[in-house]
Simulated scan of single mutants.
Amino acid sequence: MSGLPLSGKVAMIGGSSRGIGLAVAHRLSAEGAAVVLNGRDADVLDAAVAEIIAAGGRASGVLGSLATPGIAYAMVDAAREDFGRLDAAINCAGVAEPSGSTILTIDSEEFAAQIDAHLTSAFEVARAAAEVFAAQGSGAIVLTGSAASLGIFGGSGYPAAKGGVNALALAIAAELRPSGVRVNVVMPGAKTRLSTGDDYRAHIDGLRDRGVLDPGMHAAAADPGSVDHVAAIYAYLVSDLAVDITGSVFSAAGNFIGRYAEPELSLIAYRDHVDTPPYTLDDIDAALAAVRNP
């Protein structure tokens, strides 16, 4: 496999026994990397590892939920023990929000489960890998976000957790930049078991009918591209081709790739707080008049 973009590299991929994570594992392996897979179902995980090996790759697996402390560290240990090093850490772990869930119906336990599955798993992967990467002065972390964090796909726990993933990635990208460690986010759109079926279709149809999801986004959500299409951006971001890219949030679906602009503050009003009293409500209303949404 010498000469391939990821030749000699080793990556750990959380939530990679099926779906997008498994497609990412296959793509990294095809590009020359050895991969450590992860999943919560032993039979499914074993089958995924066997797939990679049967295709000529190098792979091992670590069983368990990444929300459980220690599982991410076990993946780090497996990478170093089985393949001698660790160069990249990717997290694709996650679960769907309960069907039809809204802020009016989700309970505290369901909300916490979403945070654990998406945000806590991302933290565990990033923390475990960052210790290795900071010490060696190199490494790439890629976390999985979602356009749901923009509020356009309904729910509450899922978008809150994915929004947290973005914030976590931006914070640790700034923190780890001096150490030569890169951190980015991919918001993928692809056909998986979470984005197919009658419940999923009823969900996105309902969002369209209520005006939450515009017709263009609804059409894209109703017929997403394959997981193989989005796997490419993950492979790129952990390769040396992306050595100067960190602190970015990407969107990918089918053959579409987008990059979100950095948030920018717009000044609404200003006056010296030392010499002037707090704003009245009318002051604020007048300041917002020029920029108020119609």
Rank of each mutant, 00 (worst) to 15 (best):
S99H: 11
G157M: 06
E110G: 11
G206N: 05
V186H: 02
A148S: 01
A171H: 13
M187V: 06
A161T: 06
G206M: 03
T102S: 10
P178M: 09
G155H: 00
P98S: 07
S138T: 00
I152N: 04
F111V: 02
A117V: 07
S195H: 03
V186T: 02
F153I: 01
S149I: 01
V165L: 10
P178F: 15
S108N: 13
L170S: 13
I204L: 12
F153V: 03
K191R: 15
D199Y: 02
A140Q: 08
R127Y: 15
G137H: 06
A169P: 08
A140C: 10
G151S: 11
A134L: 13
G157Y: 02
V125P: 14
G151R: 06
G100A: 06
G155S: 01
K191Q: 13
E97Y: 01
S121H: 08
T144G: 11
F123V: 12
G206R: 05
E110R: 04
A130E: 08
A148P: 00
I103M: 13
G157R: 09
E109Q: 08
I152S: 03
S121F: 03
A126H: 11
L170Q: 15
A161Y: 00
Q114G: 09
I204W: 04
R177A: 15
T120A: 09
G155A: 01
A167L: 14
N166M: 14
P98Y: 09
G197N: 06
M187P: 11
R127P: 14
T120P: 04
G100D: 05
T196D: 07
A135V: 06
H203P: 03
A148G: 00
I141H: 07
V132S: 02
Q114D: 12
I172A: 14
V183Q: 06
S149G: 04
N166R: 15
G155R: 00
A202N: 10
S146L: 04
N166H: 15
H118D: 03
L104N: 12
P159K: 00
S195I: 04
G139N: 01
A129V: 10
A160D: 11
S138K: 00
A140H: 11
T192I: 12
Y200N: 01
S179G: 07
G100M: 03
F133Q: 01
S149P: 10
G189H: 03
L207C: 07
I106A: 14
R177H: 08
G145H: 06
L168H: 10
A112P: 09
A173N: 04
D199E: 10
G139C: 02
S99I: 14
L170M: 14
P178Y: 11
G145Q: 12
A117P: 05
G137R: 01
A167N: 14
S99A: 15
H203C: 02
K162E: 04
G164P: 12
T102R: 03
R201D: 09
L150P: 07
A122E: 08
A167I: 07
S149M: 12
L119G: 08
A117I: 04
A202R: 12
L176Y: 10
A171M: 13
R193C: 05
V185H: 03
G189Q: 02
T192W: 11
L194I: 05
A174T: 14
L207V: 02
K162C: 08
R193E: 10
N184H: 08
V125C: 13
G157I: 02
N184E: 09
N166I: 15
G145D: 07
A96S: 13
G137P: 04
S146P: 09
E97S: 02
S99K: 13
G100R: 05
G164R: 14
